[in-house]
């Protein structure tokens, strides 16, 4: 059986894998940037030299209409509401919390915004968001014992301090890198997130950026950022770059990363106005 190595435009390599793996990944839209292929991991040829692979990539053609697929996902949510958490996550009754959680992670990933194909229709994005929220809320209920069917089994003691049981999309990290080497960041701006734009002295809405606390992202990291605004239909898509990287070793600097946004004057004004409206009186953003 022939084994293949595939090399992407960014130089990363996958292999050796069989034709079936490539077929499956291509069908899932995960191999769209293959540049070269090898059958020994040493000598590389353009993808076009391998007709059996070239025909597969890109393969996913989006059968069915977006509206139809979205409707199907919503029908699935409706059907799931009638089932128990164990049935939904496909684990036996009496399964331990860790087992339920592992099954939840397996199931919910399919609907995570970062796992949807690039340019997925809005209807599908919304329906997947609803499914993600349904499953996340259910997992939170199981985790906190609010389902009436608490998992059994023995749950081992936590490895470290247990993180808060938050299962929303924003809790999932390891951002996918786009084909151009940048990261995709989606940020919903509302009362709970406005502090990202107001708390840091140097990187804030006044200077055209925001600060991500506790997460240390390498300086210079480029990002494709999509901002949505609670109660406002506008969507702001822009580029950003990490301009502050603080590991927290300096007590005068909070641990985290500051991101500078590339905004037009009109975009900056809108963002400042929106943030100002969300900021409690007496708390001004630090400029």
């Amino acid at each position: 059986m022939t084994r293949y190595w595939v090399r992407n435009e960014d130089g990363t390599v996958l292999g050796p894998v069989g034709l079936m793996v490539i077929k499956d990944l291509a069908a899932a839209g995960q191999l769209s940037s293959i540049k070269e292929v090898s059958v020994d991991g040493q000598k590389w040829k353009p993808l076009g030299a391998f007709p059996e692979l070239n025909a597969l990539v890109p393969a996913a053609s989006g059968a069915g209409t977006a509206a139809g697929e979205a409707e199907q996902i919503r029908a699935e949510i409706k059907a799931l509401r009638l089932k128990s958490p164990h049935e939904i996550f496909g684990v036996p009754r009496g399964a331990g919390l860790n087992e339920v959680r592992a099954a939840f992670f397996e199931k919910v990933k399919r609907y995570h915004p970062q796992r949807l194909p690039r340019g997925a229709p809005r209807e599908i994005q919304e329906a997947c968001g609803e499914m993600f929220k349904f499953l996340s809320d259910l997992m939170l209920a199981v985790q906190t014992g609010r389902t009436g069917s608490a998992p059994g089994g023995r749950t081992p003691a936590p490895l470290a301090h247990t993180p808060p049981p938050m299962f929303g999309a924003e809790a999932f990290v390891g951002l996918l890198r786009g084909a151009n080497g940048t990261y995709q960041v989606n940020l919903a701006l509302g009362p709970k997130t406005v502090e990202l734009f107001t708390r840091h002295k140097l990187v804030n809405v006044q200077t055209g950026g925001f600060f991500i606390p506790d997460r240390v992202i390498p300086l210079g990291t480029a990002m494709d950022i999509t901002l949505t605004f609670q109660g406002d239909p506008r969507v702001l898509s822009t580029r950003g770059k990490v301009v502050v990287e603080s590991a927290g070793q300096d007590p005068r600097q909070p641990k985290g990363s500051g991101v500078q946004l590339n905004l037009s004057p009109a975009e900056r004004t809108f963002l400042q106005t929106f943030v100002s409206a969300l900021t409690p009186k007496g708390e001004k953003s630090q400029g």
């Binding site: 860790n98 592992a102 992670f105 796992r115 081992p156 993180p163």
Partner: peptide, 16 residues
Amino acid sequence: VVKPFHPMEVLDAVQR
């Protein structure tokens, strides 16, 4: 573990 990952997912796997 598939990216993006949840912190608990990785901690659970490492713990196991």
